[in-house]
């Protein structure tokens, strides 16, 4: 017996420069992203639709509840709805579905590099946030106008840190929840309270003290603070940004470990 296994006759390759496994995986994941109705609904359509409704509900003049133009308050706030929807709904369902259907085992068995799936999901999540965020601003611009960014560097830091934190949380959720249905149920349960209390619902000024205290510890509300406050000139939100950064670090480390092929 020899080690040489007779194989099916070889035929020449059609491609001259094969792409790396990580690049192939990323290409496939980006394709699937735009074909996923859940993503299109919750990450792209839902934030735009609710922003249009809520943004026009409280007029354009600052008052006791809104320190700035309410429409601008909501435009700045709703940017982080995209981040929340990506991290709490899109990615957990996507990854739990992969685990449930054995797709991750297939990637591992096919020899995809250990970190390629984690990197692909991080990239895909950030792309989804960038595209959906741009779409939200593109719709807001002619309707309510885009508020002037008072501190671009802090806003960019807030968006980037919040996006990494929630993408990693989403990946982590996807790896611990047993099925796509469970991920959808848990994701929606986490998303809607976060959305209503921390981002797109009534402003904190009109909330009861209990609800206001709650918004101060919700991760999505902290991301919103770290983006909205420097955007609208309401403060630097250093405390919120710091907590979001810690969440990002922890979640990224855990998510990378859990998704290693």
């Amino acid at each position: 017996m020899t080690t040489t296994t007779p194989s099916v006759p070889e035929t020449p390759q059609t491609r001259t420069r094969p792409r790396s496994a990580a690049r192939r995986l990323l290409t496939a994941e980006l394709r699937l992203l735009v074909r996923d109705p859940l993503t299109l609904t919750f990450v792209l359509v839902f934030p735009v639709l609710t922003m249009l409704i809520i943004g026009g509900s409280f007029g354009t003049s600052p008052d006791e509840a809104f320190p700035v133009n309410p429409s601008h308050w909501y435009v700045a706030s709703y940017f982080t709805v995209v981040i929340g929807a990506t991290g709490l709904i899109m990615l957990p369902v996507h990854i739990a579905s992969y685990r449930e259907r054995g797709v991750l085992r297939r990637f591992a068995a096919a020899g995809f590099p250990r970190w390629s799936f984690a990197l692909a999901q991080l990239f895909v999540g950030l792309v989804a946030i960038a595209v959906a965020g741009a779409a939200l601003l593109a719709v807001a611009a002619p309707v309510y106008g885009i508020p002037e960014v008072q501190d671009p560097l802090r806003v960019a830091t807030g968006v980037a840190t919040g996006a990494v934190a929630f993408v990693s949380l989403g990946v982590l959720l996807g790896t611990v929840l047993p099925s796509a249905r469970a991920a959808q149920a848990v994701g929606l349960l986490l998303f809607f309270p976060s959305f209503l209390l921390g981002v797109g619902g009534p402003p904190p000024a009109v909330m009861s003290p209990l609800l206001r205290d709650l918004t101060e510890v919700l991760p999505l509300a902290l991301v919103t603070d770290s983006v909205r406050d420097p955007w609208l000139g309401l403060g630097d939100a250093n405390g919120s940004l710091l907590v979001v950064a810690v969440i990002a670090l922890l979640a990224t480390g855990l998510a990378a470990r859990r998704t290693a092929l």
Binding site: A28, R31, L32, R35, D36, Y98, R101, G102, V103, R105, R106, A109, A110
Partner: peptide, 13 residues
Amino acid sequence: GSQLQDSALPDRL
């Protein structure tokens, strides 16, 4: 080359 038990591909691929 592996064909794994209970392992699928994404439906939209």
